[in-house]
């Protein structure tokens, strides 16, 4: 089980520019995208789901600071977890990477990051490469106008 090699998360891909992106699904028939990628469209049951690269930026929709790590998580505690509304309107649950997760503000710009987490409790368990969203730096920040007020129209 333990491996010194980084494990690549199956939901991470690389776009044409070599940038890491999250892979969701898209159904031509329903015109709905979804995440994580399902084998059939969760909106219509259509069997035409293809890979769909998600936007890598968005805004924080809701979050929590987790003080008690669930089994299978060997990273730093406390850590952030929550919901990010991506620039295309899709809301996804995600781990939130932040030095001080208690300082996170709903509506703040977020960007996709890839990081290594310990794959087990032992030092020789190696690491696993997984994704998270982190407060966006200026060059990756999404457009502020895509925040709260626009988003609540999706209710």
């Amino acid at each position: 089980m333990a491996s010194a090699e980084p494990q690549t998360d199956s939901m991470i891909s690389r776009n044409g520019d070599g940038q890491a992106v999250l892979l969701g699904g898209f159904s031509e028939q329903s015109q709905h995208s979804h995440f994580p990628r399902a084998l059939v469209c969760p909106y219509t049951g259509a069997n035409d789901v293809v890979d769909h690269e998600l936007p890598s930026t968005g805004v924080l929709w809701a979050c929590t600071v987790v003080n008690s790590a669930p089994p299978g998580y060997f990273g730093k505690v406390p850590f952030g977890f929550g919901v990010v509304q991506l620039d295309d309107g899709l809301r996804i649950v995600t781990r939130i990477a932040a030095d001080d997760p208690a300082s996170l503000q709903i509506g703040q710009p977020m960007g996709l990051i890839i990081e290594d987490l310990p794959a087990g409790a032992d030092q020789d368990a190696g690491t696993m490469q997984i994704w998270a969203f982190a407060p966006a730096s200026d060059d990756t920040a999404s457009d502020d106008t895509a925040s709260d007020d626009t988003a609540s129209g999706a209710r």
Partner: peptide
């Protein structure tokens, strides 16, 4: 341990309270 059930996201640090807490903050 069973709550995550091999789910691709929930095995990355999720549990029942973690699922409901974002409802509270929102």
């Amino acid at each position: 341990a069973r709550a995550a059930g091999g789910h691709p996201i929930y095995t990355r640090g999720e549990s029942a309270p973690v699922l409901f807490a974002p409802f509270a903050t929102r």
